[in-house]
Amino acid sequence: MSRLAYQYVVLRCVPRVDREEFVNVGVVLYCQATDYLAAAWHVDRDRLGALDARLDLDQVCDALRFIEGVCAGDERGGEAAAKPLGQRFGFLKAPRSTVIQPGPVHGGMTTDPPRQLEHLLEKLVG
């Protein structure tokens, strides 16, 4: 099996941008060699609620479903979902000051991008 280069960002939920506290809630993985772009996420409602009890957790989940839609290229991702995969990943990894923020871009090698995504989700999000 050949090893494939990939890039990923960890998605962080930042309930109060002014406090700069966050909880990892997802991962977006892009492997250009296999035209693979996908997101996986898990929202720990108790942990996020501890940072800000006023946080609308359903809205957080909606934002993560939007990210899934961008990756999948379907209607959930709006206009961004119609772009080529590399541009979609570029859109998703761009810094923003919203409740869901991407962390820095990291890279690695894998033989199985979908499996690597699940591994990263388990390791970095829980």
Rank of each mutant, 00 (worst) to 15 (best):
L121K: 07
K93M: 13
R47Q: 15
C13P: 02
L4T: 02
R65E: 15
I100C: 02
S2Y: 07
A39E: 15
C31E: 10
T34I: 02
R19F: 12
P102F: 05
S97V: 10
D52T: 08
V25S: 04
I67M: 07
T98L: 14
L124K: 10
A38K: 13
R96F: 05
P15D: 09
E20A: 15
R3K: 11
L51A: 07
L64S: 03
L51Y: 07
G78Y: 10
A82H: 10
S97L: 14
R19M: 11
R96S: 09
L120F: 05
N24A: 15
V125D: 04
A63G: 14
G26N: 06
L48P: 03
L85E: 01
Q32L: 08
K83G: 04
D46H: 14
A81H: 05
V125N: 02
V9Y: 00
P15C: 11
A63F: 05
I100S: 00
C31T: 09
Q116M: 11
T111Q: 11
W41V: 05
L117N: 00
V105R: 04
P114K: 03
L57D: 03
V17C: 08
R12N: 11
G73A: 09
V27Q: 05
R3A: 09
E122G: 03
Q116L: 06
S97D: 14
P113E: 03
L37Q: 01
Q32A: 15
R96H: 07
E122H: 10
L29Y: 01
A38W: 06
R16M: 13
G126Y: 06
G69F: 08
A33Y: 01
K83L: 15
